[in-house]
Design a binder for these strands. Structure first.
Length: 261
DNA sequence: ATGTCCACATTTTGTGGA
């Protein structure tokens, strides 16, 4: 079973690229972020034509997350339970083919010393509380999405020089670490370890500005985190950078892993 | 400060967000 996560930066602007990638790569499950539209305006028909069942937690203009699966979607949660007056659509969860899958779009944070940054840290804490509860069932679980945090200095072009900046600050990395310390496995890092050729300069996002893509100045901020029960089934994992090279590309590339039967 | 891309609206140019 192939599971992928992709921040598409508008599902409507990206429709041809996403459809082509689904046809080429054939993921069983795709966790989508930043659809930037409501459920009413979501292009269901095109996705359903490719054999996907769809669950959408949408929002006008901003954010918005979705789950595509070749298998039926059950136990769908729209938003994190108990979210504090959450109006932003940043989380959706479902069970499909015996795996609990979660698509999350962690807030950007804007600037370190801004209320938006604290909102980001609070969101990660709230996400942790929910994931901790779901992990207690000791089942296959995949938490995927755009975390807007680099896990370590090895996940950002510039390395240690970036430490302290947005996406690379100590509080952000501690908040992410506190989430993953519950026993989650970073699928791509597991298969492409730090210190190996395939594990270096491994990015999932490149700035549209300043030739980020052309110079491979990127960050790895999109991850697939696996529960121990899912990690036991991990096959290959990677980042498909091909769609980032296309005209009208998203600034993120799809991140994928394989769960063996 | 800059760069680029997306959605939206007091829309053909500007604004907010990333």
């Amino acid at each position: 079973m192939k599971i992928a996560t992709w921040n598409v930066n508008s599902i409507k602007a990206r429709l041809p690229i996403v459809l082509q990638w689904l046809r080429d790569f054939q993921p069983d499950v795709l966790l989508v972020q930043e659809i930037k539209t409501t459920r009413e305006s979501f292009p269901y028909l095109e996705m359903e034509d490719l054999g996907y069942n769809i669950a959408v937690h949408g929002q006008k203009s901003y954010n918005g997350v979705a789950i595509f699966s070749k298998f039926p979607l059950e136990d769908i949660l729209y938003g994190i339970p108990g979210e504090p007056e959450e109006t932003q659509a940043r989380y959706i969860e479902a069970v499909t083919h015996g795996v609990r899958v979660m698509s999350v779009y962690v807030p950007h944070g804007r600037e370190i010393r801004s209320p938006y940054f604290q909102y980001k840290l609070d969101f990660l804490q709230h996400l942790k509380n929910h994931v901790e509860h779901q992990l207690s069932f000791e089942e296959k679980l995949v938490l995927g999405g755009d975390f807007n945090v680099t896990p370590s200095i090895h996940d950002v072009h510039g390395g240690a020089q970036e430490t302290g900046k947005l996406h690379c600050s100590i509080p952000e990395r501690l908040a992410l670490k506190s989430l993953t310390n519950m026993g989650l496995i970073d699928a791509v890092r597991e298969r492409h370890p730090i210190g190996t050729k395939s594990g270096s300069a491994l990015y999932s996002w490149w700035d549209y500005r300043s030739g980020g893509w052309q110079q491979n100045k990127g960050m790895r901020i999109d991850m697939l985190y696996l529960s121990p029960q899912a990690a036991d089934c991990l096959g290959e994992a990677g980042i498909d950078i091909q769609p980032r090279s296309l005209p009208k590309a998203s600034d993120h590339a799809p991140v994928w892993c394989e769960l063996l039967p």
